[in-house]
Design a protein around this nucleic acid. Sequence first.
DNA 1: TCGAATTAGTTCGGAGCCTAACTAATTATG
DNA 2: CATAATTAGTTAGGCTCCGAACTAATTCGA
Lengths: 176, 176
Amino acid sequence: MTEKIMARSKVDFPPDQSIGYLIRATYRTYIQDLEARLAEHDIPIGMWYFLRALWHQDGVTQRELSERVGSMGPTTAEQLNNIEARGYIVRKRSDTDRRKIHVHLTPKGRKLRDTLLPLAQRNNSDALRGFTAAEIETLRLSLFRIMENFGPRRANIGASRESMQNGKHKPVATRD
Amino acid sequence: MTEKIMARSKVDFPPDQSIGYLIRATYRTYIQDLEARLAEHDIPIGMWYFLRALWHQDGVTQRELSERVGSMGPTTAEQLNNIEARGYIVRKRSDTDRRKIHVHLTPKGRKLRDTLLPLAQRNNSDALRGFTAAEIETLRLSLFRIMENFGPRRANIGASRESMQNGKHKPVATRD
DNA sequence: TCGAATTAGTTCGGAGCCTAACTAATTATG
DNA sequence: CATAATTAGTTAGGCTCCGAACTAATTCGA
């Protein structure tokens, strides 16, 4: 009764018409779903991205991991501490450049891949249930374009340009 | 040199081909951009969503705010504490139901709207630079469909169905 | 070659968000 | 009407993530 609806006053820009709002909401439903799936295997979401990157390529440095996962140094360090404590990885100082630390999966960590990677695939295909291949490609391109619009230098946080397998990716403002 | 590329072995599912990964990456670029814009006005991102919801409709309860923003009770409580401490809102226990607390903007809080809301609009239009209206609509529908796929009961976290102004929204699995 | 700049990683502190467990008020039910 | 179930909000604690400031190693340039 004390509610005042200001909606139509002056500038009306309801939250749910903002693309940022939608992206956030979509992200949250996605992440909560994934979190629940991983919880069944006792894997905190924070570890997930790093394990995933390591299954894809083993032995990379922490710096490279940060880039691939899209996280900052401290986050990477912390998660690697957790993952190491569980015995999924070992860290080896580089011989040629002693600043660098290479991260290697242990057999235990490597074994996880077979049980956990299908989770990501199911999560993925569940998300896209009912989408045609063309719709998926359109969506992917749109997300790429948004990332590039937000900050060209950041557009490769989540995925590298060349990952668009069939180079249909329209190069938007490549910023030489 | 100690790197082993496992990419092509067995199940190859590179991170950047996962839609979840792309959504996460897009969300992160978006949120970091918004965070930076808000920082110039000394508004932490955590407050933003609640202020935004209150500018849209004032005097709602904390419960309603939680629903609109898509956050859980404790998050709402904490952010409202912060916002209240800054003098942007006051909380009033309901007379008719003393469990409820209605949240009201102060003049100070209301005034913020004029300076801050345009930020959201700029953030929005920057994100979508180069998109046609049709492309935007397609993207919005895709995000809605993903949310519904992840969990029908959650699909209204970020935006209510009727917010799709021109009812083109294909009702996917409306759950009776 | 030696000091400055850069690079890799860590430590610290804090923001944001959640779940679990709680209190208080209201509503439903026998 | 009394008790149980539900609803609104809070408190406590944990996970995720980041920026700032730091150490150590390497590279650059005068």
